[in-house]
Design a binder for these strands. Structure first.
Lengths: 233, 233
DNA sequence: TTGATTAATTGTACCGGTACAATTAATATG
DNA sequence: CATATTAATTGTACCGGTACAATTAATCAA
């Protein structure tokens, strides 16, 4: 494992375990260098990582401080799938509605940058949070990249399978949000009424080499739709 | 100006001017070092910046490539106010509804981490995009930090005034999203109907030293509510 | 020509260092 | 005792360098 990754993990764990609060001070750079026996730039790199993640902020001439917001139960918009990590205290389950290999819709083909003839895995599932319907999800996976999927895999974490099982490296994602009214079909799945608010989240996921491999459309139950993001400006 | 900032700007302009597309290759590190006459780490730092901004992605052993999504008219969730930069082609105007110094609501006090007795500037305004109502905004600025505001300032860019006029440095923000139904009052402002969908965006802005200085609640017209964000995973 | 092997390319990890800006602490000054 | 000045602290910018991993290009073998 990379040194700076390891340091970042250690620091994050430390903050978690000691229940540090916003503004609490961490050891200074010099001390961290000694503690982990690495150079200044390696510690700096670890801290940059944590800064991006919204875990700390640094103030020149002053120190390194914990950044932690007060709200719970929000889904992170910046972590890959959103779940798992940020909502680890909450019970997330899935029910698979459909799974098959097919040709993409025009929309999916456009977003994945493929032809209408190229095969994709189509996945449709509902996700529950604490038993409540959280969202309805449709995904299109480029079959040339995600060569195999089955019900067991997609009931668990697809992304975990892609990275660990297939050995692929996920790079980045473009995410688009829309607010609209629920259609009759969607309302039924989400146990809401037609015309109720909904949040549509469309994401295009890319491998580290830039290839798009997954286009997903997720419709959220507006009651459960609480999202957050931490930006460095 | 910082060297790596300058390089990042230059590269971004180059991409824009030459209308480079997703996947287009930029000069390799070595060439950029020579071109800008700086060390490897400085170029790397510039590229990290652009990577965070979602402008490029790098592939080890291969090169530096342009990252550019195809959709227009989306508001960026990661840039400070969202507007100005990403929607520069669109006409954004503001109408001030209220502006005064007052005591914060319990909610504002909580989010700004201040007492109920500390003064805040309260700003309420409507923002229009191409003449259409885009959003209704309520902001609470800590008066001890943002010492003065007037109608001219808030009709233009408040953040520009805070950085340039007051010489403050904005650090980071926590942003929370909710989807709900419009109240009667909100509906009126936004020229929509009560019960229509809305997107609420609450943000807490902090200075570089970690102090929160602005809590804002923005209610978006769902028709205009198109947001995007580019994440590195 | 195909496939495997090797070599060249290219970005990333990490080191050690100097200079400096912003903050904070210490000291001097009235 | 408040306030201005100076000094110490602490993070950031930037340099130059070595080693190496992932990709791509070139070469060789069958």
């Amino acid at each position: 494992m990379l040194k700076y990754q390891h340091i970042a993990d250690e620091l994050e764990n430390y903050i978690e375990e000691h229940k540090l609060q916003q503004g609490d001070k961490l050891p200074v750079l010099q001390d961290l260098m000694i503690q982990f026996n690495v150079s200044k730039s390696t510690v700096t790199k670890a801290l940059e990582l944590l800064e991006k993640k919204g875990v700390v902020f640094q103030v020149r001439g002053s120190g390194i401080f914990v950044r932690r917001h007060k709200r719970k139960g929000y889904i992170s918009l910046t972590s890959s799938q959103g779940f798992k990590k940020t909502l680890e205290d909450f019970q997330i389950t899935s029910k698979v509605i459909e799974l098959d290999v097919r040709k993409p819709t025009k929309e999916a083909a456009f977003n994945l940058n493929i032809s209408l003839e190229e095969d994709v895995y189509y996945v449709k599932r509902i996700r529950f949070i604490q038993g409540q319907t959280l969202c309805l999800e449709e995904s299109y996976f480029k079959k040339s990249i995600v060569t195999y999927l089955n019900k067991e895999i997609i009931t668990e974490s697809i992304f975990h399978y892609i990275t660990e099982g297939l050995g692929l490296s996920i790079g980045f994602a473009d995410t688009f949000l829309h607010v609209e009214k629920l259609t009759a079909e969607e309302a039924q799945y989400l146990a809401l009424k037609e015309g109720d608010p909904k949040l549509d989240v469309e994401s295009i996921f890319h491998l580290s080499n830039g290839q798009p491999f997954d286009f997903s459309k997720v419709t959220y139950n507006y009651v459960q739709s609480q999202f957050f993001l931490q930006a460095v400006l």
